[in-house]
């Protein structure tokens, strides 16, 4: 179990950084987590995303999941929405692609066009 001090330190630091941001100002990442997504590697995709967010100290990204959306052949699917610039959907994601999408799209705002699902 995590130590209480460790948890409380994280809490204090995070609350400080969160400031007054509202939910709608946050970047959202949604990963397809139906059976099709899981079988295609969605778990590793989420683990990589969380790891990358931790490394880059990105605290106001909301990561969530959705079930099967009917594009099973394109799984793992990752939808990214950045306030003010709409939603895009990436298909056939893997840990390497995730790291690049976070660097190029989430951090720098430029979608990685070659992996987008048309």
């Amino acid at each position: 179990m995590a130590s209480l001090e460790e948890l409380q330190k994280i809490k204090a630091e995070t609350l400080e950084k969160m400031g007054v941001r509202e939910a709608q100002d946050k970047i959202k990442i949604v990963v397809g987590m139906g059976t099709c997504g899981i079988a295609a590697g969605a778990r590793e995709v989420v683990l990589t995303i969380m790891d990358e967010l931790a490394k880059r100290k990105l605290n106001d990204v909301v990561v969530s999941q959705t079930g099967c959306i009917g594009m099973c052949a394109q799984e793992p699917l990752v939808e990214i929405s950045i306030p003010g610039s709409g939603k895009v959907l990436y298909g056939k994601m893997d840990p390497m692609k995730c790291r690049q999408v976070i660097a190029q799209h989430v951090v720098n705002g430029i979608p990685v066009s070659e992996w987008l699902v048309k």
Binding site: M1, L7, Q8, I10, K11, T14, M50, L58, N59
Partner: peptide, 23 residues
């Protein structure tokens, strides 16, 4: 119990998530 210890933080917080995986 884990979230209670973290005092209202969510698993979305990347470092809390890393701690969760360790736990």
């Amino acid at each position: 119990a884990f979230l209670k210890q973290a005092g209202g933080l969510s698993f979305q917080e990347p470092r809390l998530f890393a701690l969760l995986l360790n736990s």
